[in-house]
């Protein structure tokens, strides 16, 4: 099955690229920002084969938890036992309690019941783990696996990478240009192999660290790299990822990928440079394409070097 998303533009700027969500794998995680997520949601809501589960789902406040389970199971003609399902949702101790007395996290888990009983081909979950406690997240993760076992596809959408990393399945990043695969490896594995070895192998990926996970970026994905007070940040599609390598190490590694040390604390991907702006005789900056407002400073000493490379 295939979900075709149409492109959305505003004032010539691409807000949402045309993508095809191939739900070949049973679980796909998509990492994107709130604007794209909302645009995506609007389109997905219109698709008949898809169920979109978002936060605004409400409850019948005056029913008890048990009655809510009974109602949705009957409504969807499911023969599952109410007791076992309540256990799976981790809500069996609340079965006689009315929904309006639950905490917000418990309510959120309960509203997941609606996604669970759906018989659509694909279930889209928007920020399912937001504001949940660790235990509740585990419950939800377990339920998502059960949905997959029932033969349905699951797409997780989130703007919090941490939530997606904790789930299984591949992680895709959605930006103006489309979907990109994200390489995520467990930190423990990395340490086991030894990071020196990685460098010796000359792996052409840039490791960054976010939320205790190491994310590897392909050099062409990177917009620019910045060093702020000794800390190095790799910018990909407007997002900063801390990197443990120093600027000079990165410069050496990225030199043959068309990266250029344009400033004492900046390395820029020349492939992405659209314009060289000269403010005054002594102050220049580089404007990057796609992202629109991004500008990277260019020192005067580096200008001649740049001119040589570009061939002006």
């Amino acid at each position: 099955m295939k979900l075709t998303i149409e492109v959305i533009e505003e004032f010539g700027e691409v807000l949402l690229p045309a993508v095809e969500l191939f739900a070949e794998k049973p679980l796909v995680n998509i990492y994107t920002d709130v604007t794209k997520m909302n645009l995506l949601k609007q389109q997905l809501l219109k698709m008949p084969k898809v169920y979109v589960h978002a936060h605004e789902e409400g409850h019948y406040e005056r029913l008890t938890v048990e009655e809510t389970f009974q109602f949705y199971l009957k409504l969807h003609n499911m023969d599952d036992s109410v007791e076992t399902l309540m256990k799976a949702f981790g809500l069996e101790q609340f079965k006689k309690i009315r929904v309006n007395e639950l905490t917000s996290g418990e309510r959120q888990v309960l509203s997941f019941l609606k996604a669970y009983v759906q018989r659509k081909e694909a279930i889209i979950l928007i920020e399912p783990f937001q504001n949940l406690q660790q235990v509740e997240r585990k419950v939800l993760m377990h339920l998502i696996i059960q949905i997959q076992l029932a033969g349905k596809k699951v797409v997780l959408l989130s703007n919090n990478l941490e939530h997606l990393i904790n789930s299984e399945g591949e992680i895709l990043r959605l930006d103006e240009e489309g979907l990109h695969k994200m390489d995520v490896k467990e930190e423990q594995q990395e340490q086991g192999q030894g990071s020196i070895e990685t460098i010796q192998l000359k792996i052409e990926k840039i490791p960054t660290k976010k939320n205790e996970k190491i994310i590897l970026f392909n050099p062409p994905e990177i917009d620019y790299i910045e060093s702020v007070e000794g800390e190095v940040f790799v910018y990909v599609a407007g997002e900063a990822y801390p990197c443990t390598l120093t600027l000079s190490e990165l410069e050496k590694r990225l030199h043959h990928f068309g990266f250029f040390r344009c400033h004492r604390s900046y390395i820029v991907n020349l492939q992405k440079v659209r314009e060289i702006i000269s403010w005054t005789r002594n102050s220049y900056s580089l404007s990057l394409q796609g992202t629109g407002k991004l500008e990277v400073p260019l020192s005067r000493t580096k200008l001649s070097e740049l001119k040589e490379i570009v061939g002006i």
Partner: peptide, 9 residues
């Protein structure tokens, strides 16, 4: 909750 009803069979 009406949406939940409408999305049901």
């Amino acid at each position: 909750t009406l949406r939940g009803l409408m999305m049901s069979p």
